[in-house]
Nucleic acid binder design. Structure first.
Length: 231
DNA sequence: TGCCAGGCCGGGT
DNA sequence: ACCCGGCATGGC
């Protein structure tokens, strides 16, 4: 490992300590079953979680939050049920393609995916229409408890704003940084990513400048800024 | 009111 | 290999 990446590694470890101390455990993913988590991962694409909850509640109230329940619906019916989550036509098709996959390959049970080799499973998930890297990794980490770090818009924004890694770097590069820096631990990855969302929502919105009350604000020290310039 | 939210796909360079 | 428009609701 190159000398300057040591600073990034240290920064990531310090970030986690600070965030955990500040916000405590986040108890993610907000969902009761692996299946519900997977559905939520698709519904929350570029969408506020509050809206996703409404869509999931709709499915629950109709007794349709199950693989057979959703699989039995037409695209039109499904779209109407998930309307509050936004992009409902697109997401109905994406849910459908995920369910086709789940029924065909795993008898409709998300748990059955856990037996498979993680790398191959990730590749299979990415071949499903409507599942990209973040959705695939959310399913792997939160539904199947595989040690795969999830990169989202908040993670990229918080890291770039604090001078750790430029936001135009790829998903894979961000993920590699975490995999190389942290112990391969499900619980750690789970809490850490959830903490990024937490701090991002509160202090690191898209257009606003970084708030100086952000618990990571003091990490904008010359040491870390210097490391950032060496990317 | 306008901005924002836990992406991904497809068509055009 | 990028770049960009489209997709859509609800909360602040």
């Amino acid at each position: 490992m190159k000398w300057y990446t040591i600073k990034k590694v240290n920064a990531l470890r310090v970030f986690y300590e600070k965030l955990y101390r500040c916000f405590g455990p986040q108890h993610w993913w907000p969902g009761d079953t692996p299946f519900e988590i997977a559905v939520g991962a698709i519904l929350t694409q570029n969408t506020n979680w509050g809206n996703v909850e409404k869509a999931i509640q709709n499915l629950k109230q109709h007794g349709l939050l199950s693989s057979h329940g959703i699989h039995g619906l037409s695209i039109r019916e499904l779209a109407s049920l998930i309307k509050p989550a936004g992009y409902f036509n697109v997401k109905a098709k994406r849910l459908r393609s995920f369910l086709d996959f789940l029924m065909n390959e795993y008898h409709g049970r998300v748990e059955n995916m856990a037996r498979e080799d993680v790398t191959q499973l990730r590749a299979k998930l990415l071949r499903i229409h409507g599942i990209g890297p973040e959705t695939a990794d959310s399913i792997l980490l939160y539904a199947l408890e595989k040690p795969i770090f999830v990169i989202d818009a908040y993670t990229k924004r918080v890291l770039s704003r604090h001078g750790i890694m430029a936001s135009e770097r790829s998903y894979a590069e961000f993920q590699e940084l975490f995999h190389a820096s942290l112990k391969r631990e499900v619980h750690l990855y789970n809490e850490y990513h959830a903490l990024f969302v937490r701090v991002g929502k509160t202090f690191c919105r898209r257009t606003k400048p970084l708030c100086d009350r952000c618990p990571l604000h003091d990490m904008l020290s010359p040491v870390y800024l210097k490391a950032a310039r060496l990317l």
